[in-house]
Design a protein around this nucleic acid. Structure first.
Lengths: 336, 336
DNA sequence: TTGTAGGCGTTATCAA
DNA sequence: TTGATAACGCCTACAA
């Protein structure tokens, strides 16, 4: 049998039962100065009545809900997952709840989300846009609550921003492969109309140049997405048409898809072809062989983003802040 | 330069600007019957003023926030991740937002969470408890909002419940291994004081019995957790001490850790020792060799849980409902 | 069709 | 130290 959810005690119920005014109840429960005997009585009554202040009414009164939203394309993406896990404890510590928003890789959905902030159902937003359009930047400027953007946005954008130099990260991977003796380094990229795809391609090219290797268009294969399944198709195409001694995947899933396609050809990652991924997520340490990967500091970015946003919620004014996380390489068996 | 977030237009602002009363504004904006010329004017004024009704005030008035919480031990667990991804679209469809709660495997945290529902900061809760204590069941009974439990709970618990027969799932895996000719089937379990660990052990034993094999305590290895790292330790211990021709992992991560330890010994999963996992998450199709796994319908459970909860939010009364998802086996290379 | 007024539950101001 | 009262922004009888 289900209980009814209807009639909960309010502050009036408690006041009546304790024989005091509602203001006294409020004060007693919120630790304001008052007669301690009365405080005890009120607390006792509240307990027996099972009274708990209505968070909705409190929020209405204070005009903040103590909750923020985190909006990403897909929570299943390991990088975003790492961020959520990093954001959570920071918020919990501060008594702030976390709302999850899936934008489904739609800039339109992100813009709608920014507009809806004027409804004030959250106190702030952490947004990790996959594509940055002019319109998005414009909406960021006029957002009704503090916003922190995770990912690279134009310099003049008037919001806090935490980013990672993923171009440098990709270059790092290329350097490593070159140092291991690779001369024909294939690149399995994701869509280039996304911020990550774009900057990783730039990093691949820069890395080649710095290593004294020439960029060969035919060693570049662009997957339809950053997911494993589509990666398999792209990896197959790359290996069908080109002989490579090293492969950089734009993320771990793409790198692992390359490992699979090597296996299909009787080749072993590490021994025959060196493979490096990016993100350094759980998959990297679980894959076989373990995957060398560029750590892009997803967890760190999440933590920083949460802290920046909390500052704003606490009233911190001042110009937009920019935090940059530096990528590093975690070397495992797949590249040795 | 940051904008100020202070003075947003209210319904009064709009009313004054449009030269009507606040009730007219409310009616105009909510599509109530009224003079259409006036409606147009109000809408125009609202638009130029950038007015959007304050969600907090609306929620306060209606006494519901249009948001629910999903509470799990760790959102990084692939099974829970699959649930979130399944829950999201159902809620979005209904205009309900999703709050994420991490309980960190603490029953105490779960109980606190259930109590805090009386604060009414969510309209309902989907809870996936890892351990079910009497106290938890008791709190479920007196929760202030509708609750849906994902996972097996005692029959008399007065809340909606969606579960999977994971005992049958584990037995399914054992049958499969036996049918492939395995006679010494090791079991890499997670902690047995958890609901999943407990029922999977029972399924392993039942499966052996049904296959005409005897349960051998020494073929059972219990990992400290369901995570890959600890799985490696347990898998090593199992393989150091016993010769097996089949291994069942209590989840995909544990099964993959077994694959790793086999590799260390020059053995290949599938060819030398058949390996089966449970969960059938992304990891199963990404691992090398691809992992045969018991699909426990995590996504399906998420969808159903969301629907059950939505029913309650819409006022559906009636006795607690029980939904059971049936597990099935996805066969891949690791067991052939 | 429109406006006035009351109320949702809480906190805060002010006078007693 | 306490209690009456106003206010937060919105919706909705009810009266005009």
């Amino acid at each position: 049998m289900r209980p009814t959810y209807e009639t909960r005690p309010t502050i009036h119920t408690v006041a009546r039962a304790a024989g005091v005014s509602i203001s006294s109840v409020s004060r007693a429960l919120n630790g304001q100065t008052s007669n301690s005997e009365m405080v005890e009585r009120v607390k006792a009554v509240a307990l027996t009545l099972g009274y708990a202040p209505n968070a909705l009414a409190q929020s209405f009164k204070h005009q903040h809900l103590d909750q923020i939203a985190f909006a990403v394309e897909d929570i299943g993406n390991p990088a975003y997952l790492a961020m959520v896990r990093a954001i959570e404890p920071v918020l919990q510590q501060a008594g702030i709840r976390l709302l999850l928003h899936s934008t489904g890789a739609s800039v339109h959905a992100e813009i709608e989300l920014l507009r809806s902030l004027s409804r004030r159902y959250v106190d702030g937003l952490i947004l990790s846009p996959i594509r940055v359009t002019d319109e998005l930047v414009h909406e960021l400027a006029s957002a009704s609550t503090p916003v922190v953007v995770v990912g690279t946005i134009p310099g003049e954008s008037p919001v806090d921003n935490v980013r990672v130099d993923s171009k440098a990260g990709a270059a790092l991977a290329v350097h490593h492969l070159a140092a291991q003796g690779c001369r024909r380094i294939g690149f399995l990229n994701g869509p280039v109309d996304t911020t990550p795809g774009n900057s990783r391609l730039a990093g691949y090219q820069a890395g080649l140049e710095e290593a004294g290797l020439v960029f060969d268009q035919s060693l570049l294969e662009t997957s339809a997405s950053f997911h494993f399944d589509e990666g398999l198709i792209a990896a197959k195409s790359l290996l069908d048409h080109q002989k490579v001694d090293g492969i950089l995947g734009a993320n771990d899933a793409l790198a692992v898809s390359a490992i699979h396609q090597l296996g299909t050809r009787g080749l072993t990652a590490g021994r025959d072809v060196r493979v490096v991924g990016m993100d350094d997520g759980e998959l990297a340490s679980i894959s076989l062989p373990r995957l060398t990967s560029v750590n892009l500091g997803a967890a760190q970015r999440g933590t920083i983003a949460a802290q920046l946003l909390l500052d704003r919620l606490r009233g911190e004014a001042g110009p937009p802040r920019l935090r940059e996380v530096v990528p590093f390489l975690t070397v495992r068996e797949s590249s040795q």
